[in-house]
Design a protein around this nucleic acid. Structure first.
Lengths: 220, 220
DNA sequence: ATCCCGCAAATAATCGATTATTAATGCTAT
DNA sequence: ATAGCATTAATAATCGATTATTTGCGGGAT
């Protein structure tokens, strides 16, 4: 299905930061550069909007969302509120297969370099994906697809905001935080794990706090 | 915008139960009966799918989702997991305006008859809406739009499943449960309120448990 | 009698063009 | 000189028709 490809491409482009926040997503331009008709671009855009990766202004088209600092803090707070509870459930219910997958995901994350030389200041695509998989795997023991869908939505919003944050906590010990998370989870220490995760999310939020809103930008 | 109207109509129709679970949503039929072109119907359908109110089968069109008993239990569990936590936050943070809105929402719910004579066994539309507003208002004190969006999504899924449940708990004391919720919330007793809400959701889940899956149905 | 293959009808997906709305530009009147 | 209005260019929204895919039916071979 063509619209699926266009949707995937659009989603990746936005998440990768190819467009600046506030940039207009013009159906005609996208159609030409993708070699498809307006209809499929439009369908892809509607899906992207539904996922929160773009805004729609009635009769004024589509645009990359301009995340405010306030919005970012709300997303971070929502994650702090929900994810530790789900992690508790996951640790109580996860089976041996889950344990194995947690180990595997942590191993991959630990062995993936966070920064690609050519990518400048941003995290590498491989690390971002490994990071996502590790956090998701931690929660997958809960066995509830609805809760995991909720995680997916919040993670997407969170990553989009992170992509556009100007600052990064310089003294952040990602590796240690993730290792403590893995250890607590595999030790079935739900209380400690939930606490570590909450602190992890708080630190991430603090690292991004204070970055100013981005002004609506011009053409890509 | 035409697609907005068609979207709203489609959403209401599905939530109202105009289509049976599994029914195909044929763009051509919808276009003719709504007096619009395929494109706008298609856009509305894509949005509906994004909200979880319809399934999309590649190259096989759109259909009303056939909720399984398992799926329903997962939704109910997700609500039990998340909503009490948000309610705690809401009770800790809500201001006087929030208190007033809780009172108002409860009053409206208590004074709205649950069953409309002409609607048969189903809850009336007015009661369903008052019910939703009461539950949402309880959580709105948290002040976090992201958490409230999460509630909205789960509520929608929950109501859709409820619409198609064959059984209803006969001895259910809705009125008392809601009154206790309101009292605990306004007394700022977060622990009690969270407990009452968890029990409320458990009872709802139990009331719908055991209803068999609906077979994929034929034309509307 | 049953299974497989191919044909035909239905419908999903896509396209190119048309219509309507918006934003910008330049003109006019005060 | 500036404020307000008309014109125009750009683009969003919609439409009608075309193409591609799937599904059900019927004929023929085993």
């Amino acid at each position: 299905m063509l619209s699926e490809q266009v949707y995937a491409h659009l989603r990746d482009a936005i998440m990768r930061g190819d467009y600046a926040p506030g940039d207009a997503l013009k159906p005609q331009d996208l159609a030409k550069e993708q070699g498809v008709s307006l209809a499929v671009v439009r369908e892809a855009l509607v899906r992207v909007v539904g996922e929160g990766l773009a805004d729609r202004l009635p009769n004024r088209g589509f645009a990359v969302p301009a995340f405010s600092d306030r919005r970012w803090q709300e997303i971070a707070e929502a994650r702090r509120t929900i994810e530790p509870v789900v992690l508790r459930m996951s640790i109580e219910r996860g089976d041996v297969d889950w344990e194995a997958r947690v180990r595997a995901a942590h191993h991959r994350l630990a062995r993936t370099p966070a920064y690609a030389p050519e990518q400048g200041a941003y995290y590498s695509g491989a690390w971002s994906e490994a990071h996502r998989v590790f956090h998701r795997t931690l929660l997958e023991g809960c066995g509830n697809p609805v809760l995991l869908e909720t995680f997916d939505r919040m993670w997407t919003a969170s990553e989009l905001a992170r992509r556009w944050s100007a600052y990064r906590a310089p003294d952040r010990d990602h590796v240690g935080e993730h290792r403590r998370l893995e250890e607590a989870a595999l030790a079935r220490d739900a209380g400690t794990a939930a606490g570590v995760l909450a602190r992890h999310l708080t630190l991430t939020a603090a690292g991004l706090a204070g970055c100013t809103d981005h002004e609506p930008a011009q053409e890509a």
